[in-house]
Write a protein that binds this DNA or RNA. Sequence first.
DNA 1: GTGTTTGTTATCAA
DNA 2: CTTGATAACAAACA
Length: 287
Amino acid sequence: MPELPEVETIRRDLEKKIIGKKIVAVLILQKKSVHHSADKFKKVLIGDRISTINRRGKLLYLSFQKSLLFLLIHLKMTGQLIYRQRDKIVAGGHSLGCIDSELPNKFTRMVVKFSDGSELFFNDLRRFGYLKLVTAEEKEDILRQSFGIEPLTADFKYQSFVRLFLKRKTTIKALLMNQKLIAGIGNIYADEVCFCAAIRPNRRVDKISKSEKKKLFGCISKILLLSIQHRGTTFNSYVDCDGHTGNFVHLLKVYGRDGKMCKRCGGIIKKIRVGGRGTHFCPKCQE
DNA sequence: GTGTTTGTTATCAA
DNA sequence: CTTGATAACAAACA
């Protein structure tokens, strides 16, 4: 379940590792994960070098030194990007998400090999994730059509945020998770942001006061930044590109804590369903 | 065998 | 046209 903090952690790490590296081989182990013919994919990538790695919401996009195409990578629920140096000693061991596990494994969908012997593995247990080559124009269309305000940038202003509430009657959780309104927040951080602002996730947005909107606005940046500082949340399958788990899971206040004591007021965290998603909140201190 | 997990999109309804 | 709610998808695990 990589959301903005997890994808950003991967982006920053990969940026240090693979920029400028020359691609010498591409293995496609699962055709469905690559939205092109294997031949086209190889033809474009092999011989070129990675130029930039950017992110919008939960979507990564790479550019190249020669090709004018962009590589979009969406990890969806269980996608992983793991980078390995050559001759890295691997021991057998645990299954998903282990730093020492052998690669490729049964969930590896694509492998990119670089000229220095290092490799980038795209693993995806559930096969929702994808890699896709697009033109600059297609990329711009997708970024414009599919993503709203990008948090943690200068575009994320209180005035823009408040505008999202106008004429809407959906729940605050649905609003926070709507990528076309705000980009990058998924199920975990929607619950955490609502807790931070002391608002029930199923509250209708037209019933939220001005002071609460201010709290929400502050909480979004606060939670996302704090999670990035702790290298994201590993709940099920997320690992960074070294195969390490994220540490923010220890700082989660509500997600996955149903039945446990609220860290703020001592109430018991409850789990309900909002918009078909598992939703966690404290009935005592979230109104 | 059943229910649960979630990011995104398609679809239908209002 | 806009907005909202829901189902569907995929696949493993408890």
